[in-house]
Design a protein around this nucleic acid. Structure first.
Lengths: 320, 320
DNA sequence: CTGAAAGCGCTTACAG
DNA sequence: CTGAAAGCGCTTACAG
């Protein structure tokens, strides 16, 4: 199979101890020995086994936090990642982003064999089986931007965010209000929608339309154009800024006085003067990193309180 | 020190084989044994040593690419990261982002003890010593967004980018041109500046001012305001969009007809109608990931050609 | 169902 | 300067 120092020893005629010494560049080896061994190692295409090296030198404790991050493409995920990274850097931890392209089972197999110390799971809930396996191996984990009773979770109050959006629209005299979401049907979306609808109903208004489309600016643009031209709608709440930005384009092009509001406050939103519900993703990431590190470093204590931190979003009023 | 299965065996009275069996949830153990062992393990706060487990089960080959990423906060770095992540996901690799907050030496110590297979180094050149250590351990690496003769590098043609910026300004009748850079004095900046200045000189023009400021929108805003009010400058090339966005704000507020151009084409740039030199960061990241994986997977072959890929930036003309 | 033993690939005193 | 041996913490046939 893989070539080991044993093979090098055999081929070169030296003992494994000597081979090890030259490979580590340590002092006491004769020049000729060094050359022969290095030569053989090269010919055999030797690659040291770091695992064995770690075991014998006792260099574990790699101080690594793993994260499961489904959609790095989404700007908002990147904010969370930025927060995590920043905090971890300060605390002296590296960050291992698990491959999510693989089958879920494959990820977990990998996790179980990786010497990381804590896990941050974003967005996607873990199955009972997965949680079980993590716990068996004494791996701490925290949900980020997602919550579940009984599990460590740090998340945003999406219900409240949804209700803020409803208030924004109602305060601007909108009477015929619609919701445009995406197809993910995530916990976040469900809650934003629920909070939104509930607030509307509390004010004796009912939703005039709800649409679930691909998470794509252009699709949102087209849909919004249609809606404006049909004239049945005068206010729209978009599940997130990506969609709202498409809507804003339609609103501008048609010079419509429809009111619209997005969610997240990602980078272009401010520049575009789009009203939105801001979530502090960087802060969520920082908090998550901080808590997981705390959890690990204080792991001895029997402090079994479940972490549940709910961050409040904030209405940002601009000119949309 | 750390508690091992040996300790559990001693305390519980069972052999280490049995302890191992219950810890792995494997079949053949009596219920009472399982309970006792689990109990002892719990009391002793046992944590399995993954390194040993890996060694014995032969589960190395963690398929992990490491990266050294100095400034994740910079939007452009995030684009590269996005590209890397996307490609790695497809190829079945995980991504380990090394802690850069630590001392450099500490990072390398960590790298040497981490079972990753390839390294992508962004922006910051490695020292001779560091390169040496990587090579000794047969770790492949590629520079990203940075180049160095003799080392694998994938990077942008910053000289050309600088000259494109000069052409943009000259084509718009600017006669008194300035450059605003940041304090990093990075390879990127030097080359953009050099390309810019050279192109100016080739057209018998000379730079009317060069300023090096903090990488901060507000600082760029203030400086640009001053420059506009002094009236000595009619065209500015900014090292990157972050700075140019500050300049754009000043231009708009003062309704100046000064011409400005940035670099990178990060997300808000398009929305703000700022002209810029676009670099495809996502693509750079993808290419880097692809090449490092190729390098690893074909490591046996004696294909020692140094990789040097230079990506061309592109002028994006908008209304600034 | 359980214990003793061999072994994963490497390092490092210890003799010589 | 070099070899033989012990050991890192764990798993897994092999007997019993």
């Amino acid at each position: 199979m893989r070539v080991t120092i044993k093979d090098i020893a055999k081929v070169s005629g030296f003992g494994i101890g000597t081979v090890s010494r030259v490979l580590n560049g340590s002092s006491a080896v004769s020049d000729i020995t060094r050359k022969t061994v290095l030569n053989v190692a090269g010919r055999l295409n030797y690659k040291p086994n770091k695992t064995a090296k770690m075991l014998v030198t006792g260099q574990f404790n790699t101080a690594t936090i793993g994260i499961i991050l489904p959609q790095i493409t989404h700007k908002f995920s990147l904010k969370i990642l930025e927060g995590i990274y920043t905090c971890l850097n300060l605390r002296g931890y590296s960050l291992l982003i698990f491959n999510v392209g693989k089958q879920r089972e494959e990820i977990f197999r990998q996790i179980m064999y990786t010497d990381f110390t804590g896990l941050l799971a974003l967005v996607d809930p873990l199955t009972e089986n997965e949680k079980q396996r993590l716990k068996e191996h004494n791996n701490k984990f925290i949900y980020l931007d997602l919550h579940e009773p009984g599990e460590n979770s740090i998340y945003f109050d999406n219900m409240h965010g949804g209700s803020l959006a409803a208030e924004y629209l109602m305060a601007r005299e909108c009477k015929k209000i619609a919701f445009i979401g995406d197809l993910s049907s995530s916990q976040q979306e469900k809650e934003r929608f629920a909070g939104f609808e509930k607030k509307l109903e509390a004010n004796n208004m009912s939703l005039q339309g709800e649409y679930f489309i691909a998470l794509d600016k252009e699709v949102a643009y087209t849909l919004t154009s249609d809606l404006i031209q049909q004239g049945e709608i005068d206010g729209i709440f978009y599940y997130c800024d990506i969609l709202a930005l498409g809507g804003l384009k339609a609103k501008k092009e048609l010079a419509s006085d429809i009111r619209i509001i997005g969610y997240d406050d990602i980078s272009p939103t401010e520049y575009m003067n789009l009203s939105t519900i801001r979530q502090d993703g960087v802060n969520l990431g920082k908090l998550g990193a901080q808590k997981i590190v705390d959890l690990i470093e204080k792991a001895d204590r029997e402090d079994e309180t479940v972490i549940h931190i709910c961050l409040e979003p904030e209405l940002v009023v601009r000119e949309s």
